[in-house]
Amino acid sequence: MNEPAPSLINALSEAELAAIDAEIAHMPQRSGAAIDALKIVQEHRGWVSDASLAAIADHLHMSAAELDGIATFYNLIFRRPVGRKVILLCNSVSCWMLGSDCLTQQIRDRLQIDFGETSKDGEYTLLPVTCLGACDKAPVMLVGDDLHESVTEDRVRELFDQPGAPNG
């Protein structure tokens, strides 16, 4: 029960190593799998801690600094802990026209978080995202893996007003 959280463990798990090695197998050099490896570890651990980063860099035969330069370039590699579900709210132009700002405000109020923050119960992290390719159904957002289209205030209430949720 006292095991450290997986994100703080140095060593990569067997499952992680197997998945990373499968990517390395079709690359001319190990560092080619950098982004895949970051994503694989994030899949297992939720985010990429310094310890995780160092372990991946070691396995790819590159420096942690170089790998961090890559990790921080991409907005969907999380170098800080995130909630169990990440809300990716589209703030591109078609969704903006159809009210993504109001939606943002409503979610902020309900979950008591701003962009880049995680709700106190650790359930949700709110992030803006560029056009989700569903502009005909604006405004849209991804909650975890689920795409919500033509989102209304009522829908937001339904989604986030579970018992225990702030303001719920």
């Binding site: 591109s92 132009v93 078609s94 560029t130 056009c131 390719g133 569903a134 502009c135 005909d136």
Partner: peptide, 11 residues
């Protein structure tokens, strides 16, 4: 990679 704002055809 379809990310151009307002583009939803490739999806």
């Amino acid at each position: 990679d379809e990310m151009e704002p307002g583009t939803f055809k490739d999806r």
